[in-house]
Design a protein around this nucleic acid. Sequence first.
DNA 1: TGCTTATATGCACATATTTGCATATAAGCA
DNA 2: TGCTTATATGCAAATATGTGCATATAAGCA
Lengths: 102, 102
Amino acid sequence: MNYEQAKARADILKAVAHPIRILLLDALSRGDKCVSELTGLVDVDQSSISRHLTQLKKAGIVTERREGAKIIHHLSCPCMLQAVDCSVDVLKNSKKRLDRNL
Amino acid sequence: MNYEQAKARADILKAVAHPIRILLLDALSRGDKCVSELTGLVDVDQSSISRHLTQLKKAGIVTERREGAKIIHHLSCPCMLQAVDCSVDVLKNSKKRLDRNL
DNA sequence: TGCTTATATGCACATATTTGCATATAAGCA
DNA sequence: TGCTTATATGCAAATATGTGCATATAAGCA
């Protein structure tokens, strides 16, 4: 793998690597939602959610469609949920190691 | 999923989301290596590689063992390679969409 | 012990990321 | 058109991240 390829992969992973964006993906995994619905999930400004969604869209993980005044967001790459699951495995393994005092 | 859980997952993914760290994981997937071997992979200072490895170790993705003067690094969570593969899927899907002019 | 190789760390600096507030843009509706 | 709801964006400030250089620490060996 060369640096360019690694950079492209890193850019996708960076788009996911934020607590709020992970919460957004989690919510979208249970169905399409508009910005105001997603804003209700966390205690941050609506503008912040808007920008997080922009990042997910730029990365190609989420798509949008307009429905009247609302913009509906859709998880177009559910595969990224698996990437999040991988991180859960790491957490579990780390915990196991701690439990064994390693 | 609550914010704490999302934060823990994000911290793991952040540890991977950097081109150099992805190159390091890729190299380690083909066998354990010491710092100086890994430093040869990219044109950055040895201290930079050392710090990237520290992040991977803190996240619990890589472990180390000493062998004489050298410190050998080992990919303890190969599952993270799958997370990187997920990002490749996203890139492929994005490319497909572009090819269809969507 | 003194020298060499291997790795880590303090420091300073540059760059990137996140955030809220205010405000802009866009759609729907009276 | 004027009002309301929905979403995006400019700006400024705070925080985080990545980097090289110099140097510290640790192991092996003559």
